[in-house]
Design a protein around this nucleic acid. Structure first.
Length: 492
RNA sequence: GCGUCCUUAGCUCAGCGGUAGAGCAGUCCCCUUUUAAGGGAAAGGUCCUGAGUUCAAAUCUCAGAGGACGCACCA
């Protein structure tokens, strides 16, 4: 049962568990009625002075995190905080005294007793009766240094959560972040929907998908790389003028501090608006989330202060490249000329690379890492934006922006392409890219083109990477810190 | 996929060719209003795995496993 862990500590705890059973105590009982959480007690008795005993009876429960003075003092932790439990031999019921010797750090206990504040100022429960609610068999990591081995923290997240307050705070903030976004959108009439995870065509983004198989239908299925095309079908159908989905996407790409094979995105579509409206919405959403989670629009991130207050800088991708690399690629609209310019800048691009990918490559190398404060990078090349409308003033670029923070792409949005024939041609161009070796080019989705042919209103769309937003708002250097169970290789 | 680094007691770490170490946790004893409680004693090991070099390997070399970081890919 405890393969490799059966040692003296476990032996000792198993013996204590047997002793409990022999004393007629079920070490794994069914319930315990609590009157207060730890935090509620600290609030309620904030004014209680040191050395004062009350007759107020309370019931608390939680995990023993420390035992001092041979069991006289227990630190009991619940999800709201810590409360000291005082087990004096004159206050604990006489028949329960032997129980005290059978407790270990890690056990979950319930306590009934009176509230007092010790002469040293620690709010405590003076125990009358004590209940073992779960006997812990395996020892917890050391109390002072905690658990720092990142591999164990990810593989055994429950241990990380038990001993590392920072991890609890970070992962709770992630939930608050998602709730804040949901609240903001729900209150403004955006409809929360769920679209398929299993796709017959992995479209809506440029990425390699995971492949699986349906046995009864005997056909391949892909885990979705984006919900985009299904959400826009809902706009065509008029389910709502405003739809959104907060859910998982799966991409079969590398794993690093900013990428996990499964990640969470917010995707949102709104009829009758364009990408400039999406810029305003991006700022409002992120600001609402930041304010809710951190109580401020400024956050500290790894030694930098990020300021989410409006307005965020807006600059076109080509202008930013011109600003930082000295070449205005709009003046070199031919792919061959563009590649020469990139090469002169020291950016490697393969023969045959299309114009937009050249611009993107130079941007990635020369500009991206400089965009620390929130910046909307607008008007991305049309030929790398197959789902976006062409820019109303420049045929080379699309009405698309990506929002960068801390050098990372945080959001991606367009004026959604609604012309079915244009969409068909864009897909065909992507298929040509695929044929020339780009396995991340977007596949042709005929049904999606069919849907557009029935007419989609002018629509703005937005995607936000929630894991990255969670990282920024919790000062987490790795995406694994904000994902409860990040993807790891099996240990053996 | 490539490169660099890491892996020693349950946890946090030292040791870096010559008998495997500390603190915390656990066991036993003492003390008893502590909060990283304190004092004492005993105990606890596949030094990630496998080969090799050597009189001798936790330590050096090679291969493998897992992980961290960087690069590539990508969000």
């Amino acid at each position: 049962m405890f393969s490799g862990d059966a040692h003296y500590t476990v032996e000792s705890r198993l013996q204590k568990r047997e002793a409990l059973k022999e004393a007629g105590v079920n070490p794994y009982p069914y319930s315990f009625k609590r009157s207060h959480a730890a935090q509620a007690l600290h609030q309620q008795y904030e004014a209680l002075e040191s050395g004062i005993e009350t007759t107020d009876v309370v019931q608390v429960a939680g995990r023993i995190m420390a035992i001092r003075n041979s069991g006289m003092f227990l630190d009991v932790m619940d999800t709201t905080g810590k409360i000291q439990v005082f087990c004096h031999k004159e206050s604990v019921q006489a028949d329960q005294l032997p129980l005290l010797k059978l407790l270990d750090v890690g056990d979950i206990v319930g306590v009934s007793g009176t509230i007092r504040r010790t002469p040293r100022g620690e709010l405590s429960v003076r125990t009358t009766t004590l209940s073992v609610l779960s006997k812990s068999i395996l020892p917890l990591p050391e109390k002072y240094h905690g658990l720092t081995d990142v591999e164990v923290r990810y593989r055994q997240r429950y241990l990380d959560l038990i001993v590392n307050e920072e991890s609890r705070n970070t992962l709770r903030k992630r939930s608050q972040l998602i709730m804040a976004l949901q609240t903001y959108l729900n209150e403004r009439g955006y409809l929360s929907v769920e679209t398929p995870m299993l796709h017959t065509i992995a479209g809506g983004a440029s990425a390699r998908p995971f492949l699986t198989h349906h046995n009864t239908l005997d056909m391949p299925l892909f885990l979705r790389i984006a919900p985009e095309l299904h959400l826009k079908r809902l706009i065509v159908g008029g389910l709502s003028d405003k739809v959104y989905e907060i859910n998982r996407c799966f991409r079969n790409e590398g794993i690093d501090t900013r990428h996990n094979p499964e990640f969470t995105s917010l995707e949102l579509y709104e009829a009758y608006v364009d990408y400039t409206d999406m810029m305003a919405l991006t700022e409002a959403l992120v600001q609402h989330a930041c304010q809710t989670v951190n109580g401020s629009l400024q956050v500290e991130f790894q030694g930098k202060t990020l300021d989410f207050a409006s307005p965020w800088r807006r600059a076109s991708m080509c202008d930013l490249v011109a600003e930082h690399a000295g070449v205005q690629f709009l003046d070199f609209p031919d792919a061959v000329a563009a590649r020469q310019q990139a090469k002169a800048l020291g950016v490697e691009v393969e023969e045959g690379t299309i114009w937009g990918k050249v611009v993107e490559a130079v941007f990635g190398e020369k500009v991206e890492h400089l965009l620390i404060q929130p910046t909307h990078v607008t008007d991305l090349p049309k030929d790398i934006s197959p789902l976006a409308k062409v820019h109303r003033a420049n045929p080379l670029v699309a009405e698309r922006f990506e929002t960068y923070v801390n050098g990372w792409e945080l959001a991606n949005a367009f004026s959604e392409l609604s012309d079915p024939e244009d969409q068909q041609h864009r897909f065909e161009a992507q298929m040509a890219e695929r044929a020339s070796g780009d396995d991340e080019a977007q596949p042709l989705d005929e049904d999606y083109v069919l849907a557009l042919a029935y007419g989609m209103p002018p629509t703005g769309g937005l995607g936000i990477g929630l894991d990255r937003l969670a990282m920024l708002l919790t000062n987490s250097p790795s995406i694994r810190d904000v994902i409860l169970f990040p993807t790891l290789r099996p240990k053996k």
